[in-house]
């Protein structure tokens, strides 16, 4: 049962990824991206990473997708079909991408990953929260604060950039 659900999720992820980059209607592409993100959130659920899956759902599916859809609304005609890429461009890109895929997959398959069977850590929200805000060993307080400053800075920057130029 678990395996079947897993395969369905993987198939959903791959298909919606491909459709995201090929769909000629921009709003549909956004929705396919949403499906892809939901699929990966499902994978995280299956791996028992509940907190990460929840964040994935709220931030990605809830925040980023909405933001993207807003910008689509602001800048393009929704019904308008996107221009297809030139044949030459897509061919060369395909070659590069295929070469990269082959190289990476062969590298992955040729590497012997060690089989590990140590005790699984409890990845409940409590443990995550404690370690994230700990400033002791293995604590992530500093990166956490840095990320929060980055968020603030990007928020201010986004407002400044998108603001209508007052001087003109």
């Amino acid at each position: 049962m678990e395996l079947i659900i897993f395969y369905i999720l993987v198939a959903g992820i791959l298909i919606s990824s491909v459709l995201t980059v090929t769909s000629r209607r921009i709003l549909r592409a956004a929705v396919y991206l949403l499906f892809m993100l939901l699929g990966s959130a499902g994978l995280f659920f299956m791996l028992n990473f509940y907190f990460l899956a929840a964040v994935q759902l709220t931030v990605y599916a809830g925040g980023i997708i909405v933001l993207i859809i807003f910008s689509v609304m602001l800048t393009s005609q929704v019904n308008e079909k996107l221009e297809a890429a030139g044949i030459k461009k897509s061919l060369f890109s395909l070659i590069a991408v295929a070469a990269g895929t082959v190289v990476c997959i062969s590298a992955i398959l040729n590497y012997n990953f060690p089989a590990v069977s140590s005790a699984e850590n409890d990845s409940s929200m409590r443990t995550i929260g404690l370690q994230l805000l700990s400033y002791k060993e293995n604590g992530y307080a500093l990166p956490f604060e840095v990320i929060s400053i980055l968020l603030l800075a990007s928020m201010v920057g986004a407002i400044i950039i998108a603001k209508r130029d007052v001087s003109k």
Partner: peptide
């Protein structure tokens, strides 16, 4: 890997 390169393909085209 597959998702990554699909993304790259989209980025390029």
């Amino acid at each position: 890997t597959l998702v990554f390169f699909i993304g790259i393909y989209g980025f390029l085209t």
